[in-house]
Design a binder for these strands. Structure first.
Length: 266
DNA sequence: AAGACACGCAACCGCAAACAA
DNA sequence: ATTGTTTGCGGTTGCGTGTCT
């Protein structure tokens, strides 16, 4: 709905690459080519599909639009919170952020950030206090200096403030393969959590019971029992799934608004 | 009704990393 | 080790559409 369908091939450009919007026919060709034969190199995909497009363009179209696993629905509140949180901890590493949000593309997240969230945060920053440097939050991981704001404004801009780091609770293991063993009733450690998160990563995507139990291990308890913090990177979970766990957001918020600022933990 | 403006988003561009020859 | 090609990423642009005046 944006660029003209083609401008480069107008006139004499019989052999030139097309640019601009993709036609339904081009989409069909690309989709068929990839689903039937896969991708060796993107330039060959373009050629085999009979498209006068660069490999780069084909890749972009597939990744951002044609891929079957893409979510079509608008970005939810929860997803927005995840974006804000991940952006805080990772900076503008959109592909990394997208990798943690199944069904979403880096381009989509980047666009969402630039057109909505950033604008809102900037507005909140402008409306907020000026020159109160003592209460400014930690800077984003990379760049985006102009987006710094105080915590109150961030809270106003984002419905649910999500810390960059996730609390790990000293807690009892609820379930782990049904076996007693060391993990059945022991206090968890960061290292253990990491290894569990890795082994359950695949099933987390399915929202399986095992994955949920592993998440619950981390989520269980209350904020007084927090003994460590993990970044989203270290967690290796879908933040969205974690946030659905009972008590997680409550504990998060209570920790966030307690004396310790989460930013200082980064 | 129409022009101006803002917004959202698809797609391009340039660069750097990874890979192959 | 060098050179050329491909891929992936982040920043940016351009335009259709909706809203405001």
């Amino acid at each position: 709905m944006v660029r003209k369908p083609s401008s480069v091939d107008a006139g004499t450009g019989e052999n030139k690459e097309r640019k601009g919007l993709w036609s339904p026919d081009e989409d069909e060709r690309l989709f068929t080519q990839i689903t039937r034969h896969g991708v060796s190199t993107w330039s060959s995909v373009a050629q085999l599909a009979g498209l006068r497009r660069s490999g780069k363009s084909c890749r972009l179209r597939w990744m951002n639009y044609l891929r079957p696993d893409l979510k079509k629905e608008p970005i939810s509140k929860r997803e927005e919170e995840t974006i804000i949180s991940l952006q805080q901890s990772l900076g503008n590493r959109w592909s990394t952020i997208a990798a943690r949000m199944p069904g979403r593309t880096d381009n989509e997240i980047k666009n969402y950030w630039n057109s909505r969230i950033r604008k809102r945060l900037n507005a909140a920053a402008k409306a907020g206090r000026v020159g109160d440097s003592a209460e400014k939050p930690s800077a984003p991981a990379t760049g985006e200096k102009e987006e710094s704001m105080d915590n109150a404004d961030a809270a106003a801009a984002a419905p649910l403030p999500i810390p960059a780091r996730f609390p790990v609770f000293a807690c009892q293991l609820l379930v782990d393969g049904g076996g007693g063993g060391d993990q059945s009733t022991t206090t968890t450690t960061t290292e253990q959590q990491n290894s569990w998160s890795e082994e359950s990563e695949a099933s987390v995507g399915d929202g399986s019971e095992d994955a949920r139990h592993h998440c619950a291990v981390i989520a269980a308890g209350d904020s007084n029992m927090i003994h460590d913090f993990l970044t989203f990177d270290e967690l290796d979970y879908q933040a969205e799934l974690l946030m659905d766990m009972p008590g997680v957001m409550d504990a998060w918020e209570s920790e966030l608004y307690s004396s310790n600022s989460m930013g200082s933990l980064n």
